[in-house]
Design a protein around this nucleic acid. Structure first.
Lengths: 193, 193
DNA sequence: AATAAGTTAGAACGGTCGCTCCAACTTCGT
DNA sequence: ACGAAGTTGGAGCGACCGTTCTAACTTATT
C-alpha cells in the first residue's frame, strides 16, 4: 500500500517507473501479459508496495495517459494547423496500441472501464466544442459534417490506420497515408481565420 | 484431437456450437475469459476433443467469421445501395466487438494474428477493388479520395462508433449516427450508374 | 554510530489456467 | 443384442496468477 507517512523523494519517480513498465509490457505483449511478476521484473520494483492492486495500477496508467492526451490535444487544437496537429496526435502508433489494450482490458475490469469511459468523454467533449468554429475556418458546412461525426471519423480513421500498420496488415497504407496528407494540405491551405 | 476416421453426423454441428460458445464468451466477457473450462461450460461439449488447442479454436472462429463477412461484403457491394449496405455491415455492434477482442487476442497469439491479418487483407482488397467504379458512380473524385483511404475511413468510423456505443462512452452518438445517415441519403440519391 | 522509516526479496496461500489421460458412457452398423 | 467407434466426465499435471506476509535490506536523520 501507499505509505501513510513520509515517502522518500524517489517514491514519486518509482511510481512513474511502474507506470512506464506497465505501458511497455502492455504495448509489447498485450494487456493479459500485465501481471504482478512481469511488471515487477520490468520495473525492478515491488508492485504491491506502491500500488495496492493491479486495478489501481491500470487506473493510474489511464489517468496519466489521459492527462498527457488532454494537454496535447489542447495544444494541437490551438496550434497554427489545428487539423493536422490533431490528426498527428490521434494517429500515434504507441498511443493507439495502448488504447486497444486498455479498452480490451476494461472489458472485464469495471473500474478501468469507468476510467477509460470518463477519459473518452472528456476528449470527445474537447473536440466537439472546438469543432464548430474550426469547421467554419476550414470552410466546411457544419450541417453536412456534424462535429460529433467529424470527431468520430478522425478518431476512427487514425485508429484503423495505426492498427493496420502495427499489426502488419499491409493493406495499402501508403496510399491511405498519402491521401490523408493531401487532404490535410488542401484543408490547411484553404483555412482562413 | 479431431478423430481420424468416421465422425458422426452431429460432429460438424458440435464444432459450430463450440465456435458459437466462444464468440458468446468473447463478446460477453472479453477474450481473456475464453478459457477451456468456460467454453466447455457454455457449449456443453468437450473442447480438446473437437479442437486440439485454444489457438486452433480461435483460428476457427476467425475463419468462420471471415467467410461470413466476405460473403456479406460481396452482397453489399453488389446491392442497390452499395455504400449504405457496406456501412451497415461494418457498423454491426456484435461484429465490431468481436473484432476488438480478436485483434487484442492476436497480440500475443501469433497464429491468430496471422489469420486476422490475412482476413483483413482479403476484406480490404475486396473494398479497394470495388471502390474505383463505385466512387465514380457516386460522383466522387478518385484522386481526392483514394480507395485505400475511403476503405480505412469507413472501417475506422464504423469501428469507433460501434465501440463507443458498446462501451457506453456516451459521446453524442445520436448526432454522429444522424450525420452518417444524412450523408448516406445524399450520396445514394446522387448515385448514377 | 544509532535509530527509525521506507523499501525489497522471497516464500506462501488458494485459485485458475491449458492440456493430457483414462474409464465410462452414448451412438451406430451389423 | 452385440461390438466397435465416437464422445464425455473428471481427475490430475505443472505453470502461473493476485495478493499477503515477514524478515531483511537501504536510506535518511539525528
Amino acid at each position: 500500500m501507499v505509505p501513510a507517512r513520509r515517502p522518500r523523494t524517489a517514491t514519486a519517480e518509482k511510481r512513474q517507473r511502474l507506470l512506464d513498465a506497465t505501458e511497455q509490457v502492455m504495448i509489447r505483449d498485450g494487456y493479459a501479459a500485465v501481471t504482478t511478476r512481469r511488471v515487477e521484473a520490468e520495473a525492478g520494483l515491488k508492485l504491491h508496495y506502491h500500488y495496492g492492486s493491479l486495478d489501481e495500477l491500470l487506473i493510474a496508467v489511464v489517468r496519466r495517459r489521459g492527462q498527457q492526451t488532454v494537454a496535447r490535444l489542447g495544444q494541437a487544437l490551438a496550434s497554427p494547423e489545428p487539423l493536422r496537429a490533431w490528426w498527428r496526435l490521434m494517429a500515434e502508433p504507441a498511443g493507439n496500441r495502448l488504447l486497444v489494450e486498455l479498452t480490451a482490458a476494461a472489458n472485464h475490469r469495471p473500474a478501468v472501464q469507468a476510467e477509460v469511459a470518463s477519459l473518452a468523454r472528456q476528449v470527445r467533449r474537447m473536440q466537439t466544442e472546438a469543432l464548430p468554429s474550426l469547421l467554419d475556418e476550414y470552410g466546411l458546412d457544419g450541417d453536412e459534417f456534424p462535429p460529433a461525426l467529424v470527431a468520430s471519423a478522425v478518431q476512427g480513421l487514425a485508429f484503423a490506420m495505426a492498427y493496420d500498420q502495427a499489426s502488419g496488415f499491409d493493406t495499402a497504407q501508403e496510399e491511405a497515408v498519402a491521401g490523408i496528407e493531401r487532404l490535410l494540405d488542401r484543408l490547411e491551405r484553404g483555412r482562413r481565420r
